[in-house]
Computed example of a mutant assay.
Amino acid sequence: MRLRSLLAATIAPVAALAGAFALAGPAPAQQPAPAAAPGAVQAAVLPGSEEMVAHRGAYRLSFDKSRDSSDISRAEGVMLFEVLDACDGWASRQRLTMRLQDRDGQTIETASDYATWESKDGRRLRFSMTQMTGGAVSNRITGEAVLQADGSGVANYDQPGARQEALPPGTLLPMAHTIRAIAAARGGQRILNVPLMDGTSEDGAQESTTVVSPWKREADAQPRFPLLGGQESGRMRIAFFGKDNSGGGASSPDYEVGLRYYANGVADELNMDFGEFSVNGKLETLEAVPGGC
């Protein structure tokens, strides 16, 4: 497969994998909700939300491996991620740039700018994603998803065209998935199968399977960053399946991401598998971001 053909198949997973560990976030045009007035009644929040931390991090992406049949010989890039506590919601933005090289030495750059806002009750998501290839916009997805108490709901898309997708019962939004996955790891659960709605696909929710490794209950004695001090952690791998490739059985995922989650929602030690090739992501910088009500 030549490089430009491969990009057509992998550019969406590039953005989706960038969002796989997102806490949540707002469309760039949306402003965080104003802080509540003193004494105001706060909306319900998901249990575990209070442990999530607003932060800003930069990841260095390096080539891991490619399949023997793949045309990709090299891949590298950077990913910038920030999540803000917007009082009644989590606002985040992820910007990812990758440079790919084929076996003939041809190179091309692909990028994505992905942003969301997710209410702290896990019921509403605004999303915006712009994908670029060679500096030109190749795709844009914007819209909003609303869930009922049982996780069913609808995703209303504005771009690339006005349309509505039904969301099945049990659907989770990105922050809710992060909280549920960490809770599963702490509770000794090994598998988490849920539909995940993150706004990176035009088809609504994607089936996901998260394989959870045993939770590390002792914190690192000498963490690389102060924000990780005293934090337990656990490794997991999340596989995503399209509508025509539902999870379970012998089905192969459309793409996968492996990562190490800390108890406060920070992710490190990424491995992003696009099928044809995979890259590793190392957390290079990390800082806390003030916010909240």
Rank of each mutant, 00 (worst) to 15 (best):
L259E: 02
D150E: 01
G105E: 00
A267N: 01
D268K: 05
L3V: 06
G265S: 01
N193V: 15
A166P: 07
Q164D: 05
G57M: 14
Q159E: 15
A250L: 09
A16P: 04
R217N: 12
Q189V: 04
R217L: 04
S119W: 03
Q31L: 15
A36V: 09
I238W: 08
R74W: 04
I72S: 04
S213G: 07
L6Q: 09
M52D: 08
P223L: 05
N139K: 15
A145L: 07
D268F: 06
Q148S: 14
C293K: 03
T178A: 13
E207G: 13
R260D: 08
E50Q: 12
R163M: 15
R190Q: 11
G122T: 02
A149K: 13
P38Q: 00
A91M: 08
Q148K: 15
E109K: 06
M236D: 01
G161N: 10
Q159C: 03
V266I: 13
G151D: 00
A263N: 05
R99A: 15
D244V: 00
A149F: 05
L227K: 01
R93N: 10
M236P: 00
S66N: 02
Y262G: 02
I72T: 12
M175R: 14
S152A: 07
V78T: 14
R74C: 01
D88G: 12
D64I: 02
G122Q: 04
S73A: 15
E109T: 15
E144F: 03
E287G: 11
E118K: 03
Q42H: 15
A155R: 13
G105V: 02
G122M: 00
S66L: 03
L46E: 07
P26F: 12
L3T: 06
R103F: 08
R237Y: 00
E276Q: 13
G230V: 04
T107V: 09
S112I: 06
W117A: 14
R186W: 04
T110I: 15
R186S: 03
E51V: 11
M1T: 10
T210P: 02
S252N: 08
A43Q: 12
V137Q: 15
A37K: 11
N245D: 10
F81S: 13
E118D: 05
R95P: 01
A22P: 00
A263C: 03
R74K: 12
R180G: 02
S92W: 06
A9Q: 14
G249M: 00
I72D: 07
R103I: 12
R67F: 09
G247P: 09
D203C: 05
I108L: 12
L227Y: 05
K65F: 11
L7Q: 08
